[in-house]
């Protein structure tokens, strides 16, 4: 089992780095080439969500991305925001997406979750074991060589 762990301060500029590392490890782990765009997008969305939550709550704590290739390729994105901030998976209907009263932030959050749910078959959002925060866990199959 190989594990790569990356921690970064909650700044938007680092989300791209997390995406690049996540895809590089996925490729190395044997995730099918045609799934890599989805891996990149999903890791980006999970990290964007974590960065937004830390900024919303004024938290300087690092966001952690942990990638593991035992059995399958699993990625955990861990934030430390209060648990009540972790809204469930919701997909906004088209008429609500275009509604004037929906703020850009709310729309982005809803769309982000729609992308996570749409692109990741094996997705879990759950509280972290210690302290406040949530963990977004995503798993993709690997092709053994």
């Amino acid at each position: 089992m190989a594990t790569v762990r990356l921690s970064f301060s909650p700044a938007p500029v680092h989300v791209r780095t997390a995406r690049l590392v996540g895809v590089a490890v996925a490729r190395r782990a044997g995730v099918a080439e045609e799934l890599l765009d989805e891996v990149r997008l999903a890791i980006g969305e999970a990290c964007t969500r974590a960065v937004a939550l830390h900024n919303q709550y004024g938290l300087a704590d690092l966001v952690t991305v942990e990638m593991s290739d035992s059995e399958a390729y699993s990625v955990r994105v861990i934030d430390h925001a209060p648990i009540e901030a972790s809204v469930g998976l919701t997909k906004l209907p088209p008429d609500e997406l275009a509604d004037e009263s929906l703020t850009e932030d709310a729309l982005t959050t809803g769309v982000g979750f729609a992308l996570l749910a749409g692109f990741v078959d094996d997705l879990q959002v759950r509280p972290v074991d210690d302290g406040p925060g949530t963990e977004v866990r995503m798993v993709w199959p690997v092709q053994r060589r």
């Binding site: 995406r19 990149r40 997008l41 980006g44 969305e45 964007t48 997406l97 275009a98 850009e104 932030d105 729309l107 982005t108 959050t109 769309v111 982000g112 992308l115």
Partner: peptide, 11 residues
């Protein structure tokens, strides 16, 4: 590459 933030800006 286009993520939810970019989609929010377009909307």
């Amino acid at each position: 590459f286009l993520d939810s933030t970019g989609l929010g800006v377009l909307v």
